[in-house]
Design a binder for these strands. Structure first.
Lengths: 212, 212
DNA sequence: GTATGATTCAAACGTTCGTATGAAACACTC
DNA sequence: GAGTGTTTCATACGAACGTTTGAATCATAC
């Protein structure tokens, strides 16, 4: 029988999630062994399969835990824009999309710089199982943002609108990755400047004249 | 003794490279086994270690073979711009950077859409060995382009210039990946339109007002 | 305190991996 | 055609992997 007032072994589950988040981000999915995760979490090897079912299900849980607060914050900001009387600017919409990422980065800074490094690793994985996880975790919110951008940028055909929105995501993801460290030699910029530079770039890109 | 007019077993080496390029792009480095590569290439398992030394060295060879024609074409176009009498536009420089990628895509279309999918997989790998491969394969050329952009965009401090150039790479890479297929539902656009949409986006982003 | 279900644990299973080995097959020179 | 260096081949090795198992431990209810 499960007493409803206590979640059984929430501690073990969370320690596994914490360790898995860091190690999956550092090494990627395939190169992260459950032995390394359970050792870092200080739990038994079998605990992963007991609590999550499989390695893939653990990845799914990690992604969901990261995505949920970001998606919620994005929606809140978008609804705040909708509540305003006049139409928002492109920059305001993109800011509502990007700021929650940086905010989550700062909130979890103690856990290390690995929160969205994980997404930069898994997002390029063509495995349909993983792409479905991402679509389930972020897809609905992305759709909402595209609908708003379509109103603000009516001169773009659907194809170019989606292409540009995907470009915005690519920029944000790429900067959270550890790609091309040679291009990040100066990379000690505070998160706030990184956010402003990103918004300036993608706002200009979004607002460029149509190619059609 | 090696007769200089024939490269010994160039056929086996190239068949391994062809198969490895596709499989590494599809599945990533860790999830690609040498058994799958050698079976797809129709050669013996031991041929990889004989011809390349190790799995990492095979990846290195694959990256180099992809990077070399692109880097050479990029440099040629940049030097053509330098030879011109008047200063090139930002768009012209970015076009010199991006067009060789799309050209290589079309040239190797018969091998499948996997040429740069590979790069989108390995570029997010924090493994220093892999990042060093990429830096060796692309770094010098990137440095040359940054120097040109610095002249054309003197109002950007060094940090923002590098950030924006990295953003351009992020956009190009992300679109070559298979990330977020839901955002590519219309993705039957011809390569040429994809190139023009990319150039429009990154030219506007590069030319945005400075945030400092 | 005893019974019951949830959780943890050490140990093992079968599989797959990258790599190494030594003999066979080949290409070439003299 | 004997000799030499190169390439291929079947096979094996040790290690690491995800997962399973069954007993031990814990927490709770009666």
């Amino acid at each position: 029988m499960r007493p409803p007032e206590t979640v059984p072994s929430a501690d073990t589950k969370e320690r596994i999630l914490d360790a898995a988040e860091v190690l999956l981000a550092e090494n990627g999915y395939e190169a992260t062994s459950l032995r390394a995760v359970t050792q870092a979490a200080g739990v038994n090897l079998a605990a992963v399969n007991y609590h999550f079912g499989s390695k893939k299900d653990l990845l799914d849980a990690v992604i969901r835990r990261v995505a949920e607060p970001v998606s919620r914050s994005r929606l809140e900001r978008l609804e705040a824009l909708e509540a305003s009387s006049d139409a928002p600017s492109v920059e305001a919409v993109l800011r509502a999309f990007l700021e929650p990422v940086f905010q989550h980065l700062q909130d979890s800074a103690a856990r290390g710089p690995t929160v969205f490094l994980l997404l930069s690793r898994v997002i390029s994985d063509p495995d349909p199982r993983i792409q479905n996880m991402l679509a389930a975790a972020f897809g609905d919110v992305g759709q909402r943002f595209i609908e708003h951008l379509a109103v603000l940028l009516p001169h773009l055909d659907e194809e170019e609108l989606w292409w540009r929105f995907k470009s915005c995501i690519g920029v944000a993801i790429f900067h959270q990755s550890r790609s091309l460290p040679a291009l990040s030699i100066l990379g000690s910029a505070p998160d706030e400047r990184n956010l402003e530079m990103t918004i300036a770039f993608v706002t200009a890109g979004m607002s460029a004249p149509s190619t059609s």
